[in-house]
């Protein structure tokens, strides 16, 4: 019998260790498929952060480097400058890339570093147990905003892809979601495009993916998906936020 669905070659046999209903696994699978379809597994070096996203180093079949919280893009820059012909991507949580590592997010994009960054936005610090993230929504309860994020005290959430899209070195920026089959197909298209942009050496490519954290949101997997649609999508608008002419011509 023909096998119609299995693990993409981009993923190892190591079983995902995420909580039930967490969409980290879906996003990693999409990247694994893209690595296989573009036939770049052997040419790719991934960089993992600290956080639930950090487990990525075990799940992909390509080489991986793990460093400090927030520094994946600086590490990716070092790798790419040393090996300009290889494909380099970072897989980072929202706290990692939009909080502690913001300076690298801005400057990696501004330099047009020929790497690809995937941000997983679950509006919370997952691994450390559900503290407020830079992406936590107004009024959203977390362990460090127990009465809900107060904009006067904590300020406003950051829509990182929107900011990155304003920088000249970023040539492809997309905001996608892992909540539904339709959106997952869109997400894969964006991730694939981002890697193709890098293959063509056009500049920095960035994809932000809305993702669930049922454990720290205190919701069932099913309710988490609906919560994401109802609360995150109005704030973090989906779509291709930036596609330069060169990228369109790819």
């Amino acid at each position: 019998m023909e096998k119609v669905f299995g693990r993409p070659k981009g993923l190892t046999e190591v079983p995902f260790s995420f909580c039930p209903g967490c969409t980290h696994g879906i996003i990693m699978r999409l990247i694994g498929e893209v690595l296989e379809e573009l036939d770049i597994i052997e040419d790719t070096i991934g960089v993992s952060p600290v956080g639930c996203a950090g487990f990525s180093q075990d799940f992909f079949t390509c080489d991986f480097v793990g460093g400090p919280h927030g520094r994946a893009q600086a590490i990716g820059t070092g790798i790419k400058r040393a090996l300009p012909d290889k494909i380099v991507f970072t897989y980072q949580g929202d706290g990692d890339i939009a909080g502690i590592g913001t300076q690298h997010a801005i400057h990696t994009a501004a330099r047009g570093e020929r790497i690809t960054s995937i941000m997983v936005n679950n509006a919370i610090y997952g691994m450390t147990g559900g503290q407020m993230a830079p992406t936590t929504l107004a009024g959203m309860k977390t362990s460090t905003s127990p009465h809900g994020r107060d904009l006067v005290i904590n300020g406003h959430p950051i829509d990182l892809p929107k900011t990155i899209a304003t920088l000249d070195g970023a040539v492809y920026v997309a905001s996608v979601s892992a909540d539904s089959p339709k959106n997952i197909i869109q997400a894969k298209k964006a991730i694939k495009k981002a890697f193709q942009v890098q293959q063509a050496g056009l500049g920095f490519s960035f994809v932000s993916v809305l993702s669930t954290c049922p454990t720290n949101w205190g919701l069932s997997p099913q309710d988490s998906l609906q919560w994401l649609r109802d609360n995150m999508m109005p704030v973090y608008k989906l779509g291709e936020l930036k596609v330069t002419e060169e990228v369109k011509n790819l």
Partner: peptide, 14 residues
């Protein structure tokens, strides 16, 4: 790490 060509993947992490 320079791409896992013809060898097993490597991880550098701590």
């Amino acid at each position: 790490v320079d791409g896992a060509k013809g060898r097993k993947k490597r991880i550098i992490a701590s």
